Simulated assay, not measured.
Amino acid sequence: MKVFISADIEGTAGITAWDEAKKGHPEYEEFREYMTDELVAACEGAKAAGAKEIVVKDAHSTARNLILSKLPAYVSIVRGWSGHPDLMMFGIDKSFSAALYTGYHNKAGTDTNPLAHTLTGTVSRLLINGEVASEFTLNALCAARYGVPSAFLSGDAGMCAEAKAIAPGIGTVATSEGFGPATRSLTPKAAVASIREGVEKALSGDLKNCLPKLADRFELVVEYTTPIEAYRGSWYPGVEHIAARTLRFEAKDFFEIQRAIRFIV
């Protein structure tokens, strides 16, 4: 079994404020460690379930967050941003048996995580075929392009619920719940134990219901926080500038949606 893991930080247990997620702030070092510990727990669970190869994508901000000395010897890691449209999933291909997600957060505009957002702070809402999408939505569909099921996700409770709506068979661990700018969270130790157990259980089960169905055609609608961002993105080939803050793009292949997002978001 070959497993791909996409690791983010805003859904890490305990995280509550942006300073805890941003490199250069004193609080970041503590939560960088928790992010790494949760990722390592997912690796250990995958290995216990029979994974022979694990590839990790550091998928937050600079993509240089995970503490490499803590990673198991059997893991390889993709750091930095290549520019490829797979973005947070760069490194995945059809040879993988499953995709896992740690530290994930809910989409922009939701109240289940104080740090909820979608890709960047310039996006107010991003819709795929009329449904407001999260980063997990985009990444699970990316994995599905390669025929790879999304087997497990850890993150805020709202994100876990939405993940199950997209991939009903996915295993989840809710690390926290948002209350406006506050959170109620598992402790880092409890999160690590739950993630390790949850990943092993998820990968030992039937993954048939973990593969989202790809539509025959896709419509991407991006609503920005300012008209300036929409104007800049409107020059991408095939994009319609349908309102002051809104762009629209259609394609048959989801990769074309990913490529458009790469350049307009």
Results as ranks from 00 to 15, higher is better:
F136G: 01
M159R: 12
P114D: 09
A99F: 01
D111Q: 09
P149C: 02
V123D: 02
G169W: 05
N106M: 04
F136Q: 11
H117Y: 15
G103Y: 02
V148D: 07
R145K: 06
S176C: 12
G180M: 10
E131H: 13
D93F: 08
V148H: 06
L127H: 10
A161L: 14
S134W: 05
L119P: 00
A140W: 00
C160S: 09
A157G: 02
R125H: 13
L87K: 06
S176Q: 12
Y146M: 10
G109P: 14
V132W: 10
Y146N: 08
N106H: 08
V123L: 03
E177A: 14
R145V: 00
S154Q: 07
D86Q: 00
G169T: 00
Y101I: 09
V132K: 14
H105Q: 14
F96C: 07
A167E: 07
L119V: 14
T175S: 14
A99Q: 11
T102S: 15
K94Y: 03
G180F: 14
A163L: 09
T175L: 06
A98C: 12
L141I: 00
A108Y: 05
S150D: 14
L119F: 03
F90N: 05
A133W: 12
M89L: 15
L119G: 05
L126F: 04
A144G: 02
T110F: 00
Y146W: 06
G178H: 03
L115F: 10
G109I: 07
E135P: 03
M88F: 04
M89E: 00
N129T: 06
G158E: 12
R145W: 01
K94M: 11
L141W: 01
K94N: 08
A157E: 05
G147E: 00
S97D: 15
V173I: 03
A167M: 01
E162I: 05
T110C: 12
G180K: 14
G130I: 11
F179T: 05
A116W: 12
G130D: 13
I170S: 07
T120C: 02
A99C: 15
G121E: 09
A98W: 13
L126D: 01
F179Q: 05
P114Y: 10
M159E: 15
A165Q: 09
N106S: 15
L141P: 06
G180I: 14
S97P: 02
L87I: 03
N129M: 07
T172S: 14
T175G: 13
G169D: 02
A140N: 12
A98P: 11
C142W: 00
A99L: 08
I92M: 13
A165W: 09
A144I: 01
T172V: 15
G109N: 12
A116F: 12
S95F: 04
K164E: 11
F136D: 01
L119M: 15
G91Y: 08
Y146D: 08
T112A: 13
N113Y: 05
I128Q: 04
I166H: 11
G180Q: 10
A151V: 09
N106R: 09
A151K: 11
M88T: 01
M88N: 09
